[in-house]
Computed example of a mutant assay.
Amino acid sequence: MDKNGPVIVIEDDADDQFLFQQVFSKLGYVNEVIYFFDGQEALDFLMTTPILPFLILSDINMPKLDGFALREKLHTDAALQVKCIPYLFFSTAASQEMVINAYSLSVQGFFLKQQTLIGLEETIKSIMEYWKRCAAPNNFS
């Protein structure tokens, strides 16, 4: 995890991407935010980039490769495992089964999409501040 690395947002809804853009712009973190519309596009990027992302915020229901399938691929890839990229889900709905499935794939958080811009801002700020303060195995030389 590179604390100044980009935040990867995987969200197939353009309106939700716009809300994320508004929030990240207002919060003013130095991290670039890179958006993907589907899991396959994000996977291709993560498998080929030398960039070490700060964290991944992923929707669950997406075309091509949903959030669960993407997380499983990232979690079982040895090269990506050692990068220690926090993976968090954002979803419009949640069931106990979804949350259990998410945590069984070792996600680091499951969040419901907030209904207001202020709610989303508070959630993103909490996530960013937590991970900025958190030590990861690859933060040591």
Score class of each variant (00 low, 15 high):
residue 1 M to L: 12
residue 1 M to F: 07
residue 1 M to W: 02
residue 2 D to Y: 10
residue 3 K to I: 14
residue 4 N to I: 15
residue 5 G to W: 07
residue 8 I to D: 06
residue 10 I to M: 06
residue 10 I to A: 08
residue 11 E to P: 00
residue 11 E to W: 05
residue 11 E to A: 14
residue 12 D to P: 00
residue 12 D to C: 13
residue 13 D to I: 13
residue 16 D to V: 12
residue 16 D to G: 09
residue 17 Q to T: 04
residue 19 L to F: 08
residue 27 L to N: 03
residue 27 L to R: 01
residue 27 L to E: 08
residue 29 Y to C: 09
residue 29 Y to H: 11
residue 30 V to C: 13
residue 30 V to S: 15
residue 31 N to Q: 15
residue 32 E to P: 04
residue 34 I to Q: 09
residue 35 Y to K: 01
residue 36 F to K: 02
residue 36 F to Q: 03
residue 39 G to W: 02
residue 39 G to M: 06
residue 40 Q to V: 04
residue 42 A to N: 03
residue 43 L to S: 08
residue 43 L to Y: 11
residue 43 L to R: 11
residue 44 D to P: 05
residue 46 L to S: 06
residue 47 M to K: 13
residue 49 T to P: 00
residue 51 I to E: 08
residue 52 L to H: 05
residue 52 L to Y: 02
residue 52 L to A: 12
residue 52 L to E: 08
residue 53 P to L: 12
residue 53 P to D: 08
residue 56 I to M: 08
residue 56 I to P: 00
residue 58 S to G: 04
residue 60 I to T: 05
residue 60 I to R: 05
residue 61 N to I: 14
residue 61 N to S: 14
residue 62 M to R: 03
residue 63 P to T: 11
residue 63 P to D: 15
residue 64 K to W: 01
residue 66 D to S: 05
residue 66 D to Y: 01
residue 67 G to C: 02
residue 68 F to Q: 05
residue 68 F to E: 02
residue 70 L to S: 09
residue 71 R to N: 06
residue 71 R to L: 08
residue 72 E to K: 14
residue 73 K to T: 06
residue 75 H to F: 14
residue 75 H to V: 07
residue 75 H to W: 09
residue 75 H to M: 14
residue 77 D to A: 15
residue 78 A to M: 10
residue 79 A to S: 11
residue 80 L to E: 04
residue 80 L to I: 12
residue 82 V to Y: 10
residue 83 K to M: 13
residue 83 K to R: 15
residue 83 K to Q: 15
residue 83 K to L: 13
residue 85 I to P: 00
residue 87 Y to C: 03
residue 89 F to K: 02
residue 89 F to S: 03
residue 89 F to T: 03
residue 92 T to V: 13
residue 92 T to G: 15
residue 93 A to Y: 01
residue 94 A to K: 07
residue 94 A to P: 00
residue 95 S to I: 12
residue 97 E to K: 11
residue 100 I to A: 09
residue 100 I to Q: 04
residue 101 N to F: 04
residue 102 A to P: 00
residue 102 A to Y: 00
residue 102 A to E: 01
residue 106 S to Q: 08
residue 108 Q to F: 03
residue 111 F to H: 10
residue 112 L to C: 06
residue 112 L to K: 10
residue 112 L to I: 14
residue 113 K to N: 09
residue 116 T to H: 11
residue 118 I to T: 05
residue 118 I to N: 07
residue 122 E to G: 11
residue 122 E to D: 15
residue 122 E to Y: 09
residue 123 T to R: 03
residue 124 I to Y: 07
residue 125 K to H: 10
residue 128 M to A: 12
residue 128 M to G: 07
residue 128 M to D: 08
residue 129 E to Q: 13
residue 133 R to N: 15
residue 133 R to G: 13
residue 134 C to W: 07
residue 134 C to F: 11
residue 135 A to I: 05
residue 139 N to E: 11
residue 140 F to T: 04
